[in-house]
């Protein structure tokens, strides 16, 4: 009996210390959504289960290794114990209950994260290699940043233009793939004002790592302010060709690959692009004039810019007028 008592106490002690240690290690990012609460609640129970079960196995193992080790000069065998059916049944049935409990809690907390608010704010999300675009259908706004008001449920209707992406804001916990050919939904109720990032969580190509966009949880006043500025910007932009061009590059996710400030991203920067001399892979140099830019948009494979993969950029079947607007916009980037 003595052995069992010692091991029992050690298991409990070790389980407690393991749990405290794991808990103190700060394993979860900030909790910024209502959905995160029920997920973190379940996670905490998982940690408890892990700490306990780990100790339950490892403590008696290590104990046996030390106490029942073969000492110097010993040769014989251990005790001849073949098994014990009640014990086997016990350690089949008890884990069964633990597992059922975990699964029940899992279903419960899943239900919590899926709670529907019929008045949720609907935002349309378009994912493409390698950019996120957010459209606010009520206001006619298009943006590459997601702004959402705090404490209000948001429903993202997500579509992909090419391959599978995945919408994940670690602080919100929940993650949802964006699959071409269908609309997937993502519900979130942000609870903490701050600025986060959506990080694409499904491998989608060479720049998957960089497919991140700002997600900003605003107070209600900030949110309305942002909406009205955006509406103004959109209205202003509609007036000039370069403004429309700028909107088009946002809507089509061009800035997922092209920087405006000269830094290198997946595609060549647009800073000082117009009129510059572009080196091609085959050694030629061409001037980035209207024709070259139009061709680069309509059929990017036609010319290979040095140092960039020509297969990355998909062809964009834009109209001549749209291309003209984009060119007008490119001219302003000096």
């Amino acid at each position: 009996m003595g052995h069992f008592l010692v091991v029992g106490i050690l298991v409990i002690v070790m389980a407690v210390f393991t749990y405290i240690g794991l808990d103190a290690a700060g394993l979860m990012p900030l909790q910024a959504s209502a959905q995160a609460v029920s997920i973190d609640w379940l996670w905490n129970w998982q940690l408890i289960a892990i700490s306990f079960l780990f100790s339950l196995i490892v403590v008696p193992m290590v104990y046996s290794l030390i106490v029942f080790r073969r000492r110097k000069g010993e040769t014989g065998d251990g005790e001849h114990i073949e098994g014990n059916t009640p014990l086997e049944i016990a350690w089949t049935v008890i884990p069964l209950f633990i597992v059922l409990a975990l699964a029940y809690m899992g279903a419960y907390s899943l239900g919590e994260t899926r709670r529907v608010d019929p008045n949720a704010l609907v935002i349309e999300v378009k994912a493409r290699q390698f950019a996120w675009t957010f459209e606010y259908p009520e206001y006619g706004i298009v943006s590459n940043e997601l702004h959402i008001p705090v404490n209000k449920q948001v429903l993202l209707k997500m579509e992909s233009a090419d391959v599978i992406h995945s919408f994940w804001v670690p602080e919100f916990r929940v993650k949802q793939d964006v699959v071409p050919g269908r609309v997937t939904e993502y519900r979130i109720t942000p609870t903490l004002i701050g600025s986060y990032k959506v990080r694409c969580a499904e491998l989608c190509g060479s720049s998957h790592a960089y497919m991140e966009s700002p997600v900003i949880v605003d107070s209600n006043t900030d949110y309305t302010a942002w909406i009205s500025t955006q509406e103004k910007i959109a209205a202003e932009a509609a007036k000039t060709p370069e403004g429309q061009g700028e909107r088009l590059t946002v809507r089509n996710g061009c800035i997922g690959c092209h920087s405006l400030d000269g830094s290198r991203m997946t595609g060549p920067t647009w800073f000082n692009l117009y009129g510059s001399q572009v080196k091609l892979e085959d050694g030629r140099t061409v001037t980035a004039d209207d024709a070259f830019i139009a061709e680069s948009i309509l059929d990017p494979k036609a010319t290979e810019v040095e140092g960039f993969a020509p297969t990355v950029m998909p062809p964009y079947p834009l109209t001549d007028a749209e291309i003209a607007n984009i060119i007008a916009y490119l001219k302003t980037l000096k």
Binding site: M61, S64, F68, G76, E79, N84, E88, V99, L100, A103
Partner: peptide, 27 residues
């Protein structure tokens, strides 16, 4: 989710049996 978690049970049987194999052995 339920079916996945069920796998833990036979796996657990192995672990507990291993521990019991070590118990009182001459290791």
């Amino acid at each position: 989710m339920y079916s996945t978690l069920l796998v833990a049970i036979p796996t657990g049987v192995k672990f507990f049996s291993w521990v019991a194999t070590l118990w009182k052995g001459k290791i």
